[in-house]
Amino acid sequence: MRFARSAAVLAALVFSTTAHAAPAAAAPADRVTLPVRDALAQLPLRTEDRTGYERTKFRLWVDADKDGCNTRAEVLKAEAVIAPAQGPRCALSGGEWYSPYDDRYILGRGGVDIDHLVPLAEAWDSGAFAWTAKEREAYANDLGDDRALIAVSAASNRSKADQDPSTWLPPTTGYRCQYVTDWVADKMRWGLSIDTAERAALTDVLSRCPNVPVAVTPAR
């Protein structure tokens, strides 16, 4: 499992798209592959505006494939280092997860959060304010690209909150190249913009990282 590896190994990987078990809610488009710095250069630059944002405008944790497990459970199952036991109505117990943000292993799902790599509020600021409710639901439950939703420690997720890379980066420095590369890929996938401070932070981190190719299937 990708997140079960050490931070040092993660930093050396070539980052590519693989999918969780459930399909994306949006119809797929043609796949695009670019070096990450070129992908960053193509992201539109706009001033962000949080006017009108409410978390409830993004419907969370749906069961898109009707298998009894919602989005949160699907990510927990997909990213477990040691698989949890699954009971009736997809009740999960036990299991172990690796949190790449702070290089920790976590026993039991109680200490694990599912992080939206690009937070919901940041997505709103960057273009989701203009989306339909269905598009926002698809974003909030994106299982079509395993960079979008990540099982991490609750502590690191709450430290990050709704910040972008200009004000928050993972404490594990060896993971930062993957983090910002995935951030660029996720914004590219959803056609989201970046602001000036965000672009400067991404450019700075990526200047010290391999210019790896990122493969993205646009979600809208």
Rank of each mutant, 00 (worst) to 15 (best):
A24W: 11
A24L: 07
A25Y: 01
A25Q: 03
A25L: 04
A27D: 06
A27I: 06
P28V: 06
P28R: 08
A29V: 09
D30Y: 12
D30I: 13
R31K: 14
R31V: 14
R31G: 12
T33P: 13
T33C: 09
T33D: 01
V36Q: 04
V36K: 08
V36L: 03
V36E: 01
R37V: 00
D38A: 15
D38H: 09
A39K: 10
A39R: 15
L40N: 03
A41V: 08
Q42S: 14
L43C: 00
P44V: 00
L45K: 10
R46L: 01
R46H: 14
R46M: 08
R46Q: 08
T47Y: 05
T47H: 04
E48F: 01
R50N: 01
G52N: 03
G52K: 00
G52P: 00
Y53I: 03
E54W: 12
E54V: 09
R55W: 03
R55I: 03
R55F: 03
R55L: 04
K57M: 06
F58I: 08
F58D: 07
L60D: 13
L60Q: 15
W61C: 07
V62F: 12
V62L: 04
V62Y: 10
D63C: 02
D63V: 05
D65T: 00
K66E: 05
K66V: 04
K66M: 03
G68I: 05
G68C: 05
C69Q: 03
C69K: 02
N70D: 14
N70G: 07
T71F: 11
R72Y: 11
A73D: 05
A73M: 00
E74H: 01
E74G: 01
E74I: 09
E74D: 07
V75I: 08
V75D: 02
A78Q: 02
E79Y: 13
E79H: 13
A80W: 11
A80M: 11
I82L: 13
A83I: 09
A83C: 02
P84A: 07
A85Y: 11
A85P: 07
Q86V: 10
Q86N: 02
Q86M: 05
P88V: 04
P88Q: 00
P88D: 04
P88G: 00
R89V: 12
A91Y: 12
A91W: 11
S93F: 12
S93R: 03
G94Y: 05
G94Q: 06
G94N: 03
G95E: 04
G95K: 01
E96R: 15
E96K: 15
W97V: 15
W97Q: 13
Y98R: 15
Y98S: 15
S99M: 10
Y101G: 08
Y101P: 11
D102G: 12
D102W: 11
D102M: 09
D102C: 05
D103A: 15
D103N: 14
D103T: 11
R104G: 11
R104W: 08
R104E: 14
Y105E: 13
Y105M: 14
L107R: 15
